[in-house]
Write a protein that binds this DNA or RNA. Sequence first.
RNA 1: GGACGGGUGGGUGAGUGGCUAAAACCAGCAGACUGUAAAUCUGCCGCUCCUUGCGGGCUACGGAGGUUCGAAUCCUCCCCCGUCCA
Length: 411
Amino acid sequence: MAAGTFKPVDEQLAYLKKGTAEIIREEELRAKLEQSAKTGKPLRVKLGVDPTAPDIHLGHTVVLRKLKHFQDLGHTAIFLIGDFTAMVGDPSGQSETRPALSSQQVQENVKTYLEQVYKILDPRKTEVRSNSDWLGKMKGQEMILLCAHYRLARMLEREDFRSRMENNQPFSIHELLYPLLVAYDSVVLEADVELGATEQKFNLLIGRDIQREYGQPSQVALTMPILVGLDGERKMSKSLGNYIGITEAPREIFGKLMSISDDLMWSYYELLTDFASPEIVRLREEVRTGVLPPIDAKMQLAHTIIAGFHGEEAATRAAEEFRRVFRERQAPREAPRHRLSRSSQPKRLSALLVELNVASSRSEAERLIKQGGVEIDGQRVVDVKREVDLAQPGEFLLRAGKKKFLRLIVE
RNA sequence: GGACGGGUGGGUGAGUGGCUAAAACCAGCAGACUGUAAAUCUGCCGCUCCUUGCGGGCUACGGAGGUUCGAAUCCUCCCCCGUCCA
């Protein structure tokens, strides 16, 4: 698409609306799109992220994919790194104050972050900014003026703040600053649209107010639903361990995606793939009426998501591997390999499991064996004291639990 | 500044001197069943040693000391959180 020419507004709007939780306000978005089509000036679309966790998972990609949609339509994607606000810590969700990160740590996080983000966004078309550039230089006076633009009662309307007050939870004054600083970012960036998960709604709305206070048109707040994690209940997050990292091996991602519940599959289709909504409705109907087996729908989902990150070929291989191991109950064609050096001393299997990071302690390893979760070359090991002979070169296949396979090579 | 309440295992939360590696629930893990889904059922769920046993040792109830044969439980000091008053 040539710069300065845009698709028809209705078409853009339909594309952008897919999967969204809320657009505040939709008429404003339409007006902005019309304006941009008329002037040939792309919209500035902001997405702020916290550089605290360097690894991104599918939950983060929901909003990134939406930013990508804007980018696809020729608008400007602004990827804002909240390196300054990370010190404050977003109070959304958790009540903990985050530890301040060293700037070096932040730098490193940002680097790995961007590498991953560019699997979705087009690096050449992405404007990357860091809010320490302006917030770090802000004078005390300016900070006070910013605070003067917002009323405490309004701030305390926020669900998170209110509930903490009511439940006598700790609550520090600096946390009130977070929404204001994020809002100020929108002023500096002159954002037309800001994206966020639904839990960001409050912050995004304050952005609208603050922009107005600073004499700017208000940004449109576009929120995306929160992706539910593998447990089917809670938000996908690293700390809950119910996540799928985008850098994980295709085989891993495939297995994890297949383990989600059938119900959850539909929201994954909606939020993590480019299947159009009507198409998803059709698939869902086919599954409901028994025309399409749910497992096939899920495999297609897994395939599609993996192809996006690792390519078509890797996705096909992961699917084949899955079929082989779990449907036909065969050993995997390719298990991660691990080399062991030869030793005249036989080694306790339980100790080996710990060494291989399959179990976190001897106790846990023994437990795993006792419970029948360990196999060597397809033979279940029942003896806790089982030793492994490492005297001769050779190889064997170790299975620990449902999903972990390791090909061990003694050399 | 004053008065009061509280800090227990990944989470919630019982437990007020020995029966407590610490109830219960959640999360997690394994097995069975299956579509590696969900649901369900069974077992496990601090670390470590061995002769794998209702076995031995070690560590653990905010921190440091102390009392006691024995402390998550009592005392002292400290740190942290909250409530009310000012």
